[in-house]
Amino acid sequence: MDAPKLSVTQLQAGYGDVQVLWDVTLDVKPGEMVCIVGSNGAGKTTLMRAISALVPVSAGRIAVDGADLTGATPARMVAAGVAHVPEGRRLFGAMSVRDNLLMGAYLRPDKAGIAEDLEKVYALFPRLAERQKQDAGTLSGGEQQMCAVGRGLMARPSLLMIDELSLGLAPRMVDLLADGLRRVNAEGVAVLLVEQDVMNALELADRAFVLDRGRVTLSGPAAALADDPAIREAYMGGLAG
């Protein structure tokens, strides 16, 4: 059990001629909650997309449970236990909430397990149970995020990657989602979280990586980073007490 759930080594990636990620190295241990913080354009989303094989990797290595999956397909990453809740949620808007959740279990053959996990997601976010027949596009922003997280969980992942949990949501919704995420994590699912709300992220996570212009500039226990004056200055505007 020494192999990290996810290990990214010296990763370089980008779009066409524009390189976004420079020698990014990070890891997530089994059951751990790790967050990536950084300003807009730092490469957080690109990093997640590269891990999910949506963006081609030009150099470096991505491994899941010690197995090299560099240059795999998105489907192989899902099969390896890595589910990705993309930025902007990307729900299937004209599909029902229930069908969206079932799409998350697309690769799974175990009907009984899928039904069981559907109930678990409904228990985690009761709002989704109430609205399961509704089109996902008609949900409020917070409910959509619940649906997106639930859809990710339906793959029964061992690592859940979430690109922006709280962006644009009401504080009450953020609390519900953060609470849900803690419960998921407590059941042993590792979480890799990208979050613009640095305070919130550092509060949730065990460890954090700071990404700046495509490079990891700082990493360590989240609690330590939260006390780092440079971090407070750069990302919290010095306001947080």
């Binding site: 999910s52 949506l54 397909t73 998105p74 489907a75 899902v78 099969a79 589910a83 990705h84 993309p86 990307r90 729900l91 299937f92 808007g93 004209a94 599909m95 799409m103 998350g104 697309y106 690769l107 859809r151 793959a155």
Partner: peptide, 13 residues
């Protein structure tokens, strides 16, 4: 049809 990339993230080939 709705979102090719999101479908790919569900493991759809």
């Amino acid at each position: 049809r709705m979102d090719r990339e999101a479908a790919a993230l569900m493991g759809v080939d």
